[in-house]
Amino acid sequence: MPGAGYPNDSDAVAEERERWVRETSTRDRVYETAIQLYEPATAETVADRARCSEGAAREHLEWFSDRGIVEPIDGRPKRYQRNDAYFEWIRANELRRECTPSELETRLEDLVEDERAYLDRYGVDSPQQVDALEAGDYDSIETVWEDVGEWKTIRREIRILERARKDRDAFGGAGIVG
């Protein structure tokens, strides 16, 4: 509660942002901002969020684009968004290195079982087809949306585990593959 010895929330946020700017390189700030771009954003928007010049943001975004971390979207002005496939590839490689084939198989089986439960519960083929209003009464809408979010996460994890398993089979479990 402000005024009772507690800092004002906006002051605390501003102080934390200033510390971030002081202690983090421009490249790292642009990276941290870019990996949160679920919707296309201009270099100007990234620069504003990363607290740097537009030119610096554009230079780093192009560097990240060349490496597949972000995807450029042509147009005027050019926009960028994170490349989810890149981050799935990174996660698949981590799992492939960290897990035995048996562990990957067990995780995959568990997730497939979890997905089957959602398929049975909602009677549709994908989380995108769930209608929260049809699936329950007003009090359960939040629960339905939580289920939909979890179901989407399960599907993403299944994709990643399948990739890790296939890459392990194709490359014998050694090194990073692309």
Rank of each mutant, 00 (worst) to 15 (best):
M1E: 00
M1A: 02
P2L: 00
S10F: 09
E18L: 06
E18K: 10
T26V: 15
D28V: 12
R29P: 07
R29W: 05
V30C: 06
A34W: 05
Q36G: 14
Y38W: 04
Y38S: 02
Y38C: 00
T42Y: 07
A43R: 09
E44L: 10
D48K: 15
R51K: 12
E54P: 00
R58D: 13
W63L: 01
S65M: 11
G68I: 02
I69W: 06
Y80P: 01
N83D: 11
F87N: 06
E88G: 06
A92D: 06
N93Q: 09
E94S: 11
E98H: 07
S102G: 12
T106D: 13
E113M: 08
E113H: 08
R121P: 01
Y122G: 04
G123P: 08
S126I: 05
Q128T: 11
Q129L: 14
Q129A: 15
D131G: 05
E134L: 14
A135P: 02
I141K: 09
I141Y: 10
E142H: 14
V144S: 08
V148K: 14
V148A: 12
G149I: 01
R155F: 04
R155S: 11
I158R: 05
I160W: 05
E162G: 08
E162Y: 01
R163F: 00
D167V: 08
D167I: 05
D169Y: 04
D169R: 09
D169C: 02
A170P: 03
G172Q: 07
V177G: 03
